[in-house]
Simulated assay, not measured.
Amino acid sequence: MTHHTDARWLRFYYVLRAGVAAAWVAAAFTIGEGPPAGIAILLVAYPAWDAAANLLDARRSGGLRSNPSQAGNAAVSVVTAVAVAVALGQGPHAVVAVFGAWAILSGLLQLATGLRRWKAGAQWAMVLSGAQSALAGGFFLKQATGAATPGIRDIAPYAAFGAFYFLVSAVWLTVARARQAPVGRTA
């Protein structure tokens, strides 16, 4: 795979991740306090999608052995999807606690992926996103011990920031590629 193929793939991947996260946020705010089954599906689907996306990217980018942080992130996200399903029976505080632990672990793994891919470009946004995810996880854990009852709308801004960072990376890669293209040709 050439660097340009990698950049093309990453642009597509980052747009896909941004779009799915934005759709999830819209659904979370739309359903909000709606039917518990719909909320449960969204809460389990978010880490499940993250697992699938990490697997897809790792396989497209040289395989799981070449991308251990993404393989780890996929594994953590699968466990999280199952843990969220279990936590739903224990209440919203348990769900937010699971999301908190996941945000910390997946954020650190995303940060590691961004550092490993630094030369691919636009990874500063992925590193920043990973760090912010880890910090948000700490906030979720604190929220899980609070008196107020958390809900899906408390998790939605976390996903919105993820969408933002993926979109920034996609735009950054697109602009960088356009600057490198010969006059009269765009990628």
Rank of each mutant, 00 (worst) to 15 (best):
A71K: 08
T30L: 10
A103P: 13
A176D: 10
F29A: 11
A22L: 15
A178G: 04
G162N: 11
Q180M: 00
P36G: 12
L111V: 06
R153N: 09
L64K: 04
A170K: 08
V95I: 01
G184S: 01
F29K: 15
P36C: 08
R17L: 14
A181W: 02
L115A: 10
V44F: 00
E33I: 03
R65F: 01
A48T: 06
A71L: 09
A156Y: 13
N54S: 15
L141W: 11
V86Y: 04
V96M: 15
V25I: 09
F12M: 13
V15F: 02
V82N: 09
I104A: 03
A94H: 08
I155F: 05
A94E: 02
L55T: 04
G100K: 06
A45T: 09
L111I: 08
G130C: 12
L16V: 14
K142H: 10
A125P: 13
V20M: 10
V79I: 09
A147I: 08
V78P: 12
T174E: 03
A112I: 04
I39E: 05
I39S: 10
A37D: 14
V76Y: 12
W49P: 10
F12V: 12
K119L: 00
L56V: 07
F139A: 14
V25D: 14
R11D: 00
S106C: 07
S106H: 06
T2R: 01
A94C: 01
R117D: 11
G19I: 14
R185T: 15
Y165Q: 09
A83V: 02
K142L: 12
V15Y: 06
G162F: 13
V44P: 02
G32R: 08
T145S: 14
F140P: 01
A27E: 13
W118C: 02
A178M: 12
G89D: 09
P157M: 01
L42C: 08
V86F: 03
A23Y: 07
V82E: 10
V96I: 14
A187L: 01
L109M: 06
R153Y: 03
A74C: 02
V168K: 13
R117C: 04
A176P: 01
R59S: 07
V171T: 14
A131S: 13
A58H: 10
V96R: 13
A21D: 15
Y158I: 12
Y13R: 00
G121A: 06
A87D: 06
P92Q: 15
V98S: 01
T186W: 03
L111N: 03
L141A: 04
N54R: 04
I152M: 11
L10S: 07
A136E: 14
L167M: 12
P157L: 01
A144W: 05
G121Q: 00
M1S: 04
A71W: 00
A159P: 04
Q132M: 11
W172F: 13
T80N: 07
A71Q: 06
A51Y: 02
K119R: 11
T80L: 08
W9G: 07
A74V: 05
S61T: 14
L55N: 03
L167F: 12
N54D: 10
T5C: 03
A81H: 06
A181P: 02
Q132Y: 10
S77R: 13
